[in-house]
Each structure stands twice: as C-alpha cells, then as structure tokens.
Design a protein around this nucleic acid. Structure first.
Length: 667
DNA sequence: AGCACGCCGACT
DNA sequence: GTCGGCGTGCTC
C-alpha cells in the first residue's frame, strides 16, 4: 500500500471504558502531518465508520505497533499541544499504580477546552517563547532554617519533609498569615529565581488564600497562577493556558495542581499532606502526596512536604530514607498547657464546659487581644435525642440524625436537610427532644455568658470570619476554619479533645494532633495553648512539640498491625461474584497470606467488599492483577442475573480502590 | 458504550 | 431455505 509510509499517530482515546485504556494507532493523512503532533487533541474513528471519539496524540512514529488495517485521524481539534509529555508519563504511571485509567488522570490534568480562550492564546503567543525578556527575580533568604540551608537543598532538588514554624507572621502589606505560607512562598521564589517553575498544593481555599497572599508579597503577580476548586471552567482553562506559556511560574492550587503542565519544573511543595482534602474523590483516587512523589521521581525536581504535624506516610518516607527532614533552627516551641477535665472551681467556667484554669488563662489573655476556641462541631446542637426515652432523634423521611443549627431552631436532618417541624419519637412517641453535645454556636452562647462583655464570633464551615485587628474577641471555630489573628491569638483553647478522639478511625490520633497543632500554630509568640481533657502521649507530644516522634511511634504500631501506611491496601468492592473471582485471582497469582485478605463483608444485599493488604514492593503486581479483573468484568457479561433482557448494567460490577485513607470505615 | 458478527427457532 | 433473536466480542 502506498499509504504505508505515512506517519502513524498513537492516540489515547477519551473513554471511561477500562478496556480502551491503551494507545490506538491511526494513520496521519498527509494534509494533517504538520498539525498531528504529540499532545494535541484529535478526533478519531472508532470501530465503525461514523462513530468518532475524542483523544490525544501521545506520539507520532514512522511505523505503528498494530499490524491490522489502520484508520485515519479524522481531524486535529486544535494545534495546541495540551497534554505535555511529562504530564502524560505521570498520568500513565499514576493510573498503573492505582489500577485505573490514564484518561481519568488526564481529565484532571487537562481542563475541558474553551475554544475562545484557546484561539486567543494561540494568536497572542509569541512565535519564540525565549524572545520574551523575563524580569529577573531575586529571592529573599528563607528565614528560620539556618542560613542558606533550605535554598541549597532546593537547588540540589532534594526531597524534603519540612517542619513549619508554628507562628503567624506579618507580610509587608500588613496581612497576617501562617509562617508556613511565608516559607512555601520563599521556596517558590527561590525556584523562580533559578529559572524554574514551582507547583504548590494546598488542601483548601483558606490555606490557598494565605499562600497566595504570601506569594504576592515576594513575586510579581504575573508569575503566580492559581488553579483551584472555586474557579469555573473558563477561569481554570485560562490558568491552564498560562502554564503552557513557556515561562517559569508558581502554580498554586488544590490537589489537581500537581498535574499542571509546568515549564521547567523545579519544585513540588505540598502543604499539610495529612489533610483529607488532599485525597482525590474521583477515580482512580490518587492522593496529592502520591502524585507528587511520582512526578518528582519522573522529573527529578525538588519535593517538599511541609506541615506542623507529620503524617505517618511522610514519616515512613523519612524512615526509609526517601525524604530528609528540615526543622526550624533554632527550634520554635509553642507554649502548651495540658489540663485534665477537672470539675469544680469557677462556676462560670463550669457552665461553659471548661476547666477553671483554662477560664483564667482566657480571661487574662482577653485583656490583650483575640482568643481562639477550637470546637469539634458546627451548628448549635450537633445531635438531638428524645427527652423521654433518650433514643437518638431521627429524620422521619430518611432516618438521618437530627441537628439544630441555632438555638430554638426547628430541627433539621443532618443527611437530607428536611425540617422536622412536628417531630415525634419513633421509639416512644414523645414530642419533646433534648440536645446532646454542643456545636460552635452553642459554645459561643455559653462562653458569651462565661465571659461577660466580651465580643464573640463564630467561624465554622459555612461562615468563616476574618480578623482585621488585635481587639479582644473570642473566636469560636470548628477545626480547619480558624481565622489568622493579627499578631497571633493571645491564647488558644482546644475544647472538644475527648469528642474528637472518640471518632472511630484508624487515624484519629494523627488527625487530632494535626487539628490541634494547626490551631496552636495560630497563637502568638509565648501565648498559651490549653489542651482540655486530653492527656497521655498526645499531650506530651504537643508539650514537647515533637511531632515526628509521635508519627514514628504511630507508624511502629501500624507496622506491628500491618496497617497502612506500613503496608498498602486495595479495596475490592462490587457484586459477590465479581469480588470473589477477583480476590481469588489475586490470591492465586500473588500468594497472599490469609491474614492479608480482610473480608469479605456484605455492604448491601448481593454486594461485598474485601480488603487486600500488601507490601509496597508488590504494589505494581497487585495493581496489574486487579486491573486485569476490572477489564474482564467490564468486557464480560454486562448483564446481571435477573436483569431485564436487553438492558445492560450501567454500574460496573467491580470497583477497585487503592490506599483509601479510611479503608476500614463502613461505606 | 455502541455496534457488528454469529449461531439457533418460526416464517414467506 | 432465511429473517432476526440476543449472546459475545472488539474497538487501531
């Protein structure tokens, strides 16, 4: 055939089907040879004439790997290469590790196309990127870690676990942010100064706001690109195009920022990797931390995990020598006051559920400025119960737990939101309920009485307050919603320790330590932080501020029990038949020890879940086996027994998830 | 997913 | 004989 000599494009098809997660060969027709280049979006025929699929050209070769008849690329959607080679390599690698499809990662990495923005970008783009004279950047020294030490590690592209300085800090413009944000901005600036790009990933928009403020203090605005969850697609695409401009930039955003097409990537830094917001909810559920680790391995850039409390995952990486630690020098120790939950003493304090010593500390601190009170739950009454029989009050529509947002408010369902105006106990028929526990609003009410004449503000998930001055005020905040106070809080009260520790999770201790540490880091220099009702090793850890020692002993416990992150886990869920077959295949091929097959447990009638655990070294083998089973179950009988003939199951009968951060929680 | 191919029961 | 049922399998 005369067409044999035409180039062959290897194309990734944009399809959710696991069996299509490989490259397909297409002939490049002669009129497209100049445009059909790696990274561009194309439309290609699939199976029968007339059907077209979207895809990305991954590579263009003179010969194909498929030895059947090739179809031709139908069209090149746009000449802009949107899928950079290093991002593709990362997507493939991340998907393989998680038994998922590369296209699912590519969809996180490449936003949906915005034609107008893209055309404008192609029109305005200089022909030669190097012709743009770049304003030279000189980075200020990073303070608090010994002179030049951090910068040297960044230039040498080391992998780091950095302990943040637990203090707020004022920016030149007057705004106060956590010292961690100043550190990360400094690291980014030093990366830019050496002509490279930096990716900074934060868990949520409050952290993002602090980090952006710190970045704008050290870099020109046009060097900072924001990629976050609050953006619409147009804004997101504009930011994405900016990354493709061939300039060294700081890309700051949420978990998807780690997939940005950075030019000359020199640094990936992740703030607070233990925050569950770093866990990707979309398949194949790749955690920011893992994506960052893979990308660092592929690109050889510097990598930094920055936090106040160290996650057990990062601690593991430190202990196997993958990360080196960098701590503040000289050390910065917050002042922690542990208190047992002693009753008696101050009557006002007792009514507000706080020990008298804490009340005294807060009273003294309130003469000088703001005081932070961290509580576990938002709203007024997080739980309601029947006043007569004490059964939990449940929604009459969906059986969800009833809560109260404000004092005297009509109870509402915590699941479906339905108002329960005429509630009646499903157990004894009583119409009276009482509240169990106290949310932020109720704590605010109680503290308002305990501290007469003091201004009280509530900052929870819905309403986050911002403090602009250092006036005395009591700030009641749920964990994670604590505002930064100018000059730092004069005292921090950590109230609901016992309740937070009562959560049923493998990671409670680790999570609590992170929540408390992050709140303590908002206290000003020398200001006391009071930990109410918690003793033991957690209290000791906070008092000595040796987070790494705690993470290390926690990790040792997990090793003993063979729990993550000492080992990896894969959750296999779906129809009884599919899960049974998959687990059998994995056990047969990889010789799992019986103790490493946890389950099955029934999750719903006809569906089960089994957890496999395995050492890191076997990760790729396990993923390959499970992936093959996912493909098989997708290709095989798509009809469940008992289904009406002709209609197919749209829900896949097999789901696989690696490294779920809460693998043992009931679904 | 879609769509073609293929191998057994009631029709011109 | 063959029209069409849906089970099976493939997509460059």
């Amino acid at each position: 055939m005369g067409s044999d000599r035409l180039p062959v494009a290897r194309v990734l098809i944009d399809s959710p089907l696991p069996q299509l997660d490989r490259l397909f060969d297409y002939r490049v027709p002669s009129h497209l040879t100049g445009e059909a280049l790696p990274g561009v979006r194309v439309r290609v025929p699939l199976r029968s004439a007339g059907r077209v699929a979207d895809g990305f050209i991954i590579e263009v070769n003179s010969v194909g790997e498929f030895d059947g008849a090739l179809s031709e690329i139908e069209s090149v959607v746009s000449t802009l290469p949107v899928l950079a080679p290093d991002v593709w390599a990362l997507a493939r690698r991340a998907a393989d590790r998680a038994a998922g499809s590369a296209i699912d990662i590519v969809r996180l990495a490449v936003p949906k196309r915005q034609v107008r923005l893209e055309k404008q970008f192609l029109r305005d783009r200089p022909v030669d990127a190097r012709s743009v004279a770049e304003q030279p950047i000189t980075a200020n020294p990073i303070i608090g870690y010994g002179s030049g030490r951090l910068e040297a590690a960044l230039v040498a592209h080391h992998r780091l676990a950095i302990d943040a300085i637990p203090l707020p800090q004022q920016l030149p413009g007057g705004v106060w942010v956590g010292a961690w944000a100043v550190l990360m901005a400094g690291a980014a600036a030093s990366t830019i100064a050496s002509g490279e790009s930096a990716i900074l990933a934060v868990p949520d928009y409050r952290d993002q706001d602090q980090l952006e403020a710190a970045l704008h203090a050290v870099l020109p605005d046009d060097r900072i690109v924001r990629v976050d969850a609050r953006q619409g697609n147009a804004e997101r695409y504009a930011a994405f195009l900016q990354c493709l401009s061939g300039r060294s930039l700081v890309i700051v955003g949420n978990r998807s920022a780690v997939y940005s097409p950075a030019f000359a990537l020199g640094l990936i830094a992740v703030w607070d990797d233990g925050d569950p917001m770093h866990s990707e909810p979309l398949g194949p559920y790749v955690h920011t931390r893992d994506a960052a680790l893979l990308r660092q391995e592929l690109s050889g850039c510097a990598l930094a995990f920055v936090g106040h409390a160290r996650s057990t995952e990062v601690q593991r990486l430190v202990e196997i020598g993958w990360l080196q630690t960098i701590s503040p020098n000289p050390a910065v120790l917050p002042r922690i006051v542990p208190t047992a939950n002693q009753a008696g003493g101050e009557r006002m304090a007792e009514r507000a559920r706080i020990p008298s010593s804490a009340w005294q500390i807060a009273t003294r601190a309130l003469r000088q400025g703001p005081v932070l009170v961290q509580v576990a739950q938002p709203g007024y009454s997080p739980r309601l119960a029947c006043a007569q029989c004490h059964e939990g009050a449940r929604c009459q529509i969906c059986e969800g737990p009833l809560t109260q947002r404000m004092a005297g408010a009509v109870p509402a369902c915590g699941w479906c939101g339905a108002l329960a105006a005429s509630w009646r106990c499903g157990h004894c028929g009583s119409e009276r309920f009482r509240s169990i526990g106290a949310g932020a609003a109720r704590t605010a009410e109680e503290l308002g009485r305990a501290f007469p004449g003091v201004r009280v503000m509530v900052s929870d998930g819905q309403r986050v307050v911002r403090l602009t001055d250092a006036e005395p005020v009591l700030v009641i905040a749920t964990r994670g919603a604590e505002p930064v106070a100018p000059g730092g809080y004069r005292a921090v009260l950590l109230l609901d320790g016992e309740r937070m520790l009562a959560r049923e999770s493998l990671r409670v201790a680790e999570d609590c330590l992170r929540w408390w540490s992050n709140a303590i880091a908002l206290a000003g220099p020398g200001a006391p932080s009071v930990l109410v009702g918690v003793g033991g090793s957690l209290a000791t850890t906070l008092v000595t501020w040796r987070q790494s020692a705690f993470a290390s002993s926690e990790l040792a416990d997990r090793r003993e029990l063979r729990f993550p992150p000492a080992v990896r886990v894969a959750t296999v869920a779906g129809s009884t038949a599919a899960v049974t077959a998959t687990v059998a295949a994995a056990v047969g091929a990889l010789d799992f020890d019986a103790s490493d097959v946890l389950g099955p447990v029934e999750t719903a009638p006809g569906t089960i879940r089994t957890i496999l655990r395995f050492d890191y070294a076997r990760g790729l083998d396990v993923a390959a086996i499970l992936r093959a089973e996912v493909v098989r179950s997708a290709v095989g009988h798509r009809r469940r027994p008992g289904d009406a003939p002709g209609r197919r199951t749209s829900v896949p009968s097999l789901r696989v998830r690696f490294d779920d951060i809460e693998p043992f929680l009931e679904p």
